[in-house]
Amino acid sequence: MTNSTANEPEPSDSLKTFGLVHKAFRKRAGLTQEEFAPLVRYQPGTVASIEQGRRLPPRVYVERAEEVSDAFGVLRAAAKYATRQPGLASWFRRWADLEEQAISLYTFENRLVPGLLQTVAYARTLFNARVPVLTDAQIEAQLTARAERQRLLTERPNTGYNFIIDEQVIKRGTGGREVTLELVSHLLAVSELRNVELQLLPVTCSVHAGLDGPIRLSETPENEWFGYCEGQRTGQFIADPESISVLHMRYAKLRSQALTPDDSRSLLQRTLGAL
């Protein structure tokens, strides 16, 4: 059985709603939490946390609960809207939930290092520079949420990650020399993971397929693709097949225009030596 109730977030409205729906179907099935837990192969404490809205239900849990409760697909549908990260912008949470399920994740960035690859010092520099100014509590919430997302790189080794980062993002030196040293070292370490490909788009590539801005693409276990594009204070979730096709074409072109993973590592090592 699985049990993980440590470091649980404060309840969100969507999690509390899922918990209430879950509880209603469990009771309809005539089961106590103690009786329900072994049927879904989780601990009673986990069941309680989910019903209290204090834990995001894992995908496998939802599927088992759906079957045990004979919930007519309601639990599966409700789980799609359950989000937990209080440190994430509301318009980003749906994408963050997809990240947790993705079997393939593609990210192109020409503004900053993607959140999944940031060090704490680099992220803190970004949050400290945010306008309007964030409070210390807000910054810590943002850092906690970012760390929660970053665990995916190691906890989902079967997910394939490809990152394309504009070299200028590294050359900018955000946070100063020490922060950049740590960041480049971290990028080199992450690039050694078997499920991670890291490519740099060199500054010598004056025209490329990503001039319209960042691109994010995610493939679900059901082999559905979704996209996400982010602006100043908004994010656009993309499900339209035609738009997804365009993003795929642009991303494929970017992969051919960027340095290979090996050449990208060499460039990072030279950058590290020059700092």
Rank of each mutant, 00 (worst) to 15 (best):
R111T: 14
R111E: 12
R111F: 00
L112N: 06
V113G: 02
P114W: 01
G115T: 11
G115D: 08
L116N: 09
L116W: 03
L116G: 08
L116Y: 08
L117V: 09
L117C: 06
Q118M: 04
Q118K: 01
Q118D: 04
V120S: 11
Y122G: 02
A123W: 05
A123N: 08
A123E: 14
T125S: 13
L126P: 00
N128Q: 09
N128F: 06
N128Y: 08
A129K: 02
A129P: 00
A129W: 01
A129L: 11
A129V: 04
V131H: 12
V131Y: 11
P132E: 14
P132L: 13
L134F: 15
L134T: 03
L134H: 13
L134P: 12
T135D: 12
D136F: 04
D136L: 06
D136S: 08
A137S: 15
Q138W: 01
I139E: 06
E140H: 05
E140N: 10
E140T: 07
Q142Y: 10
Q142A: 15
L143F: 09
L143C: 08
L143M: 13
A145N: 08
A145H: 07
A145M: 08
R146V: 03
R146S: 02
R149D: 09
R149W: 06
R149E: 10
R149S: 08
Q150Y: 10
R151Q: 12
R151P: 00
L152K: 10
L153S: 09
E155N: 15
R156V: 11
R156S: 15
P157C: 13
P157W: 03
P157A: 12
N158F: 09
N158H: 13
N162Y: 08
F163W: 04
I164Q: 03
I165T: 03
I165S: 00
I165H: 00
D166I: 01
D166W: 07
D166G: 04
D166V: 01
E167A: 13
Q168Y: 04
V169S: 02
I170C: 12
I170W: 06
I170M: 14
R172Q: 10
R172C: 02
G173D: 08
T174V: 15
T174I: 15
G176K: 03
G176H: 04
T180D: 00
T180A: 01
L181F: 01
L181C: 06
L181S: 07
E182W: 03
E182D: 14
S185G: 14
S185T: 14
H186E: 04
H186G: 03
L187C: 05
L187S: 04
L188W: 00
A189M: 14
V190P: 07
V190F: 02
S191H: 02
E192G: 12
E192P: 05
E192V: 03
E192K: 13
L193K: 09
L193G: 06
R194M: 06
N195F: 13
E197L: 07
Q199V: 07
L201Y: 03
L201G: 09
L201C: 12
P202K: 05
V203E: 15
T204Q: 11
C205F: 02
S206E: 14
S206I: 13
S206Q: 13
V207G: 03
H208W: 04
H208F: 07
A209N: 09
A209I: 04
G210R: 02
L211E: 15
D212L: 11
D212F: 10
G213W: 01
P214K: 02
P214A: 15
P214S: 15
P214C: 11
R216T: 13
R216Q: 14
R216E: 12
L217T: 11
L217D: 07
L217P: 05
